[in-house]
Write a protein that binds this DNA or RNA. Structure first.
Length: 855
RNA sequence: GCCGAAGUGGCGGAACUGGUAGACGCGCCGGAUUCAAAAUCCGGUUCUGGCAACAGAGUGCGAGUUCGAUUCUCGCCUUCGGCACCA
């Protein structure tokens, strides 16, 4: 055993012991309560970044804590291995995506191991393993048979840089989420999953996830976007191709205020007119092309053209013009709206621009027609100018107008969701092949179970452009499983969100060879604690909730939600620095900057270390390649050891908040670990003495700390305050070590070891042994609070006069109210403030304070 | 625009149920140790006044409820995050 703290040796020894004893393996045969702790698995991009380290450390602390509670813990790790970066690397470096991916995995696995993360590595898999993806192919064929997966032609978001289709969720501000390219609209044949079928259940389920952050639930609620309204059909007067136009509205109460109808550029009605009119065709083409490009323009002008078609109002019989307009979305509702300019701001702006009539039919607050000269009046209120419906409020008018339209057969109530079916086809190579055979005779035929998996060929050359699968004739050619005639394979692959939607369940059934999941998945799921970034609040978490239900309905699981408790960790930030190079900002890595501080110690600037050149501080921003401010975890571990890195990350901020990287903060964490180490060395080298007079005081601190740290880690998940409490306790040990006695110090140091074991496991392991214990600290039981150590004989109370702190008194625990109040009144300083005044009220908060109200 | 989260010392943060604001750490200041430095240890550190005891002010701003408000209510301001022509 070394006297000086040597993290490399300590960490290697601790990990060797854990590996030899198999303490990290999940054992479902143990009779103990089960606990499934999971961190979002990484994409194997090459090496870990600090965001990964934070994510996995948080989850590891929770897993280790739960193990020490005696639970059987499942804490697995794997790889979200399919995806575009592998193809990009293949193009750049001429290496096959499979090889690139597997090399990255090998490196990152070692990095994870160097952090001391307590994974059950026997369950590891990568989603590009055929043993994994065969089962999602199987599930997909089941979904096709059930009608929950289907193929249709659809206008899709086309990313012209990545040459692929994007899900709506992958389009951010009109740009591809990875490439940043402006997205175009194209129509191709796509496979879809009918997530809309589950929209209501996914929405309702959010109410039963009390341990998810409210922010995430709100985002999902908004994403699903449930609206109650009506479908209304307007008969079209002068169109040979169609006899009515259907719209969706949430405001049927404003039906009498409709002055025109508007359709999207992609709407069949607009398209049919475009066939015979060049100006309309041109306008529509412009809208379709520009729709996404213009979406990021803050103030898009309302534009449109009259189609020359006329519709009849279903109740008044009035004739209304039909326009094509750029503000109507093809992807929502029916792609057509009834326009009520008096009561809808968009309709109002459009009417202003084209001088269309505005007719108010909802009374303002004064009961009169509202003023709509400057803006639409969008509140609800009693109806006016609406025939028999005048005077009805929103709810009554909704029902009455619905009934009237239903009677005419011109409308009905309808629930509309913003959520659309999930397009899962990708025209990419490095993904899971969609298990479909296209037969000229039988159509789309799912690959039969006995022919699964459809292997993805791995010896390919990726050149960019179209997927290599499209030109691999040997691979594509196949006999139709139904009729035996020559057919071809589907060459599209799944969206990679497909793989990450069910991996948590497969970890529980790792190695299962004859089914997607086995009974162990029922045992372990739902995941008790899921940890990951807030950036997955909508996409991944919504798809996983959807898949869990699909697997449930397939009889594989018996719960409805995949993740019981969700922790979304904050970003990792670091100082960013720049200098001006020919009028352009060049970002300087923080380790090349020497800080300058003012006399308060505040950072006032910095210079480039090698040249002394001034550089400007650009603030604390998320660590990123573009800002060149990433801190390499591997370098930090090499310099300080994994435990110091873990401690700093857990101590610097609560897990949900963003974390500001600080070199001096890391030094502080390192200082604490070494101090703890030295304290134990000095303690075991000292001579056992009998109890000293400070024994009770130290024991009280120790057991208060056990209570607080247990609650902070287990319930509150405020690891930073748990660490602070242990630091405080060790400060007390230092102060009382001479007077508290050897045995009490031993008890305190053992408690510190156990309480810190989830956070700095290697150091805790070494010190646990040094304190005279055998075996892994991982399996040592969590310390228990000795209630008798918490008792005190006197209490310190604060005395306030009129709410202001004026003194402190020390009273026996058993002192009666009157005795306490007397002591408060007799405090020297308090007397100065109550002297000569009348005490109007005396408030005693037991164990806390006395407040004397004087006047 | 809508939704969500947050504003506390020089900095990261603490104060959990309305009850001592600033725990713990960083930084800074002073001291010890050292030939010296590193490392380590001890003390101080919200601001203002005072040698001190102590007093006054203080949790984004303005009101309110209360014996008492960082915490609750109302109205603003700012920052960050998400969604965004969703009919």
């Amino acid at each position: 055993m070394h006297d000086t703290y040597n993290p490399t040796a300590i960490e290697a020894a601790a990990r060797a012991l854990w590996d030899a004893t198999g303490v990290d393996a999940a054992d479902e045969t143990r009779s103990a309560e089960h606990y499934y702790c999971l961190a979002m698995f990484p994409y194997p991009s090459g090496k870990l970044h600090m965001g990964h380290v934070r994510n996995y450390t948080i989850a590891d602390v929770i897993a280790r804590f739960q193990r020490m509670q005696g639970r059987a813990v499942l804490h697995p790790m794997g790889w979200d291995a399919f995806g575009l970066p592998a193809e990009n690397a293949a193009i750049q470096h001429g290496v096959a995506p499979a090889q690139w991916t597997r090399e990255n995995i090998a490196h990152m696995r070692e990095q994870l191991k160097s952090l001391g993360l307590s994974y059950d590595w026997s369950r590891e898999f990568a989603t590009c393993d055929p043993d994994y993806y065969r089962w999602e192919q199987w599930l997909f064929t089941r979904l096709v048979e059930k009608g929950l997966a289907y193929r249709k032609n659809a206008i899709v978001n086309w990313d012209p840089i990545d040459n692929t289709v994007l899900a709506n969720e992958q389009v951010i501000d009109g740009r591809g989420w990875r490439s940043g390219a402006l997205v175009e609209q194209r129509e191709i044949s796509q496979w879809f999953l009918r997530i809309s079928e589950y929209a209501d259940e996914l929405l309702e389920g959010l109410d039963h996830l009390p341990e998810w952050p409210e922010a995430v639930r709100t985002m999902q609620r908004n994403w699903i976007g449930k609206s109650r309204g009506m479908s209304i059909r307007f008969p079209v007067e002068n169109c040979p191709a169609c006899d009515e136009l259907e719209v969706f509205t949430t405001r049927p109460d404003t039906l009498f205020g409709v002055t025109y109808l508007a359709v999207a550029a992609g709407h069949p009605l607009a398209q049919s007119v475009a066939e015979r009119r060049e100006d309309i065709a041109q306008f529509c083409a412009e809208c379709l092309r520009g729709s996404t490009a213009a979406a990021d323009l803050e103030t898009q002008e309302k534009r449109g053209m009259p189609l020359g078609l006329l519709a009849r109002h279903p109740l008044t019989g009035d004739i209304l013009p039909i326009w094509v307009a750029n503000f109507v979305l093809m992807g929502y509702g029916t792609g057509a709206v009834m326009s009520v300019p008096a009561h809808d701001q968009r309709d109002w702006e459009f009417a202003q621009a084209y001088d269309l009539p505005i007719r108010a039919v909802i009374a303002g607050p004064d009961g009169e027609a509202p003023d709509v000269r400057d803006a639409a009046f969008t509140d609800t209120g009693p109806l006016i100018r609406s025939d028999d419906f005048d005077g009805l409020d929103f709810t009554a008018a909704f029902s009455a107008i619905r009934d009237a339209l239903e009677e005419e057969g011109l409308g009905e109530e309808r629930i509309q969701y913003r959520l659309r079916d999930w397009g899962v086809s990708r025209q990419r190579y490095w993904g899971c092949p969609i298990p479909i055979i296209r037969c000229g005779h039988c159509g789309d035929v799912p690959v039969p179970e006995e022919q699964l998996p459809v292997h993805l060929p791995e010896d390919v050359i990726v050149t960019g452009g179209a997927s290599p699968l499209t030109t691999m004739d040997d691979w594509k050619a196949v006999d139709c499983p139904r009729c035996g005639r020559a057919a071809t394979r589907e060459t599209d692959t799944f969206d990679t969100f497909f793989e990450s939607s069910w991996y948590y369940a497969r970890f529980a059934s790792a190695g299962c060879a004859d089914a997607m999941l086995d009974d162990r998945a029922r045992q372990w799921t739902p995941v008790d604690q899921y940890v990951g970034g807030i950036e997955h609040a909508i996409l991944h978490l919504l798809y996983a909730r959807f898949f869990h239900r699909l697997m449930r309905d397939e009889g594989l699981l018996d719960s409805s939600e995949p993740f019981t408790r969700l922790l979304t960790q904050g970003m990792v930030l670091a100082d960013s620095w720049s200098r001006d190079v020919d009028g352009r900002k060049e970002w300087i890595a923080p380790d090349r900057v020497t800080l300058e501080r003012d006399d308060k110690g505040r950072i006032s600037g910095g210079t480039l270390t090698e040249t002394g050149e001034l550089v400007s501080h650009e603030g604390m921003v998320k660590m990123s390649k573009s800002k060149n401010n990433g801190i390499d975890p591997e370098a930090m571990i090499a310099r300080y050891g994994a435990d110091t890195v873990r401690l700093f990350i857990m101590f610097a901020a609560p897990p949900e908040a963003s974390l500001e990287w600080s070199d001096t903060g890391v030094e502080g964490a390192s200082r604490f670990v070494r101090r703890f180490w030295r304290m134990v060395q000095e303690h075991v080298a000292s001579r056992p003495e009998p109890h000293g007079p400070a024994r009770d005081e130290l024991r009280r601190k120790v057991h208060e700390t056990i209570a607080k740290a247990t609650d902070d880690i287990g319930r509150r998940q405020t690891f930073n305050t748990a660490i602070a409490a242990v630091m405080e306790m060790l400060n007390t040990v230092t102060a009382l070590r001479e007077t508290a006695g050897y045995e009490t110090v031993q008890e305190a140091l053992e408690a510190a070891c156990l309480l810190l074991a989830p956070i700095i496991p290697h150091t805790a392991q070494a010190l646990w042994e040094r304190l005279g214990h055998d075996g892994p600290v991982v399996t040592a039981p969590w310390p228990q609070v000795d209630e008798s150590a918490l008792t005190v004989s006197t209490l310190e109370l604060v005395v306030q006069v009129n709410g202001k702190l004026r003194g402190r008194i020390s009273v026996p625990v058993e002192a009666a109210r009157d005795a306490v109040l007397t002591a408060a009144r007799e405090d020297e300083n308090v007397m100065r403030f109550i002297d000569g005044k009348t005490i109007r009220k005396e408030i005693l908060v037991p164990g806390k304070l006395v407040n004397l109200v004087v006047g």
